[in-house]
Amino acid sequence: MPNIRAMTDRDAGAVLDIYQQGIDTGHATFESTVPGWADFDAGKLKAPRLVAEGADGEVVGWAVLSPTSSRCVYGGVAEITIYVASAAQGQGVGRTLLTAMAEASEAEGIWTLVAGIMRENEASIRLHRTCGFELLGYRKRLGKMSYGPMQGQWRDIAWMERRSDVVGVD
Score class of each variant (00 low, 15 high):
G43A: 06
L98V: 04
L113I: 11
Q89D: 06
M118W: 09
W154D: 14
I80Q: 12
K44P: 08
L98W: 03
D41Y: 08
A100V: 01
M145A: 15
M150Y: 02
S69W: 05
V73K: 10
G168C: 00
T68E: 06
I110P: 10
V169S: 09
G152M: 09
L136W: 05
V64G: 13
M1S: 14
G54R: 01
L45S: 11
W62S: 14
G26Q: 10
V15I: 14
I110K: 07
Q91F: 02
R10S: 09
Y147F: 14
R162I: 00
V64L: 12
C131G: 06
D170T: 11
T112W: 03
A28Y: 04
E106V: 00
G75M: 04
W62A: 07
V167M: 07
A100L: 01
E58R: 00
F30E: 05
I157D: 12
N121K: 07
T99A: 15
A28I: 02
L127T: 08
K44L: 14
T68L: 04
R5L: 01
A78L: 02
L98N: 05
I18L: 01
K44A: 13
G92K: 04
E108Y: 00
Q151A: 15
S146Y: 11
G22E: 08
M101S: 06
D41H: 04
T96A: 15
V169Q: 06
T25Y: 07
G22M: 05
Y83P: 08
T81S: 15
E53T: 07
F133N: 05
A55C: 09
P67S: 06
I18S: 04
M101T: 07
T25S: 05
W159A: 11
Q153C: 01
D56W: 00
Y19P: 10
Y138K: 10
G168D: 03
P48D: 08
E106K: 00
S32Y: 12
G137V: 02
V167Y: 09
D17H: 07
P149Y: 10
A123W: 02
D41K: 08
R163D: 04
P35I: 13
V59D: 02
E58F: 00
E134R: 10
G36C: 13
A47C: 05
R141Q: 15
A52R: 00
G61A: 14
C131I: 01
E103S: 15
P67N: 08
I18T: 03
H128Y: 00
T25C: 07
N121P: 10
D165T: 11
S146C: 11
G57F: 01
L65P: 12
H27M: 13
W111V: 00
V64H: 12
A78N: 06
W111R: 02
A55H: 12
L65D: 09
M160Q: 09
I82D: 02
H27S: 13
A158F: 02
T112N: 14
D24E: 05
C72Q: 14
A12L: 11
M118L: 07
D9L: 04
K140V: 14
T33Y: 04
A88Y: 08
V64W: 12
E161F: 01
E103Q: 15
A158E: 01
W159P: 08
D165K: 10
R119E: 11
G132H: 09
K44E: 11
A115D: 04
G168M: 01
K44R: 15
T8F: 02
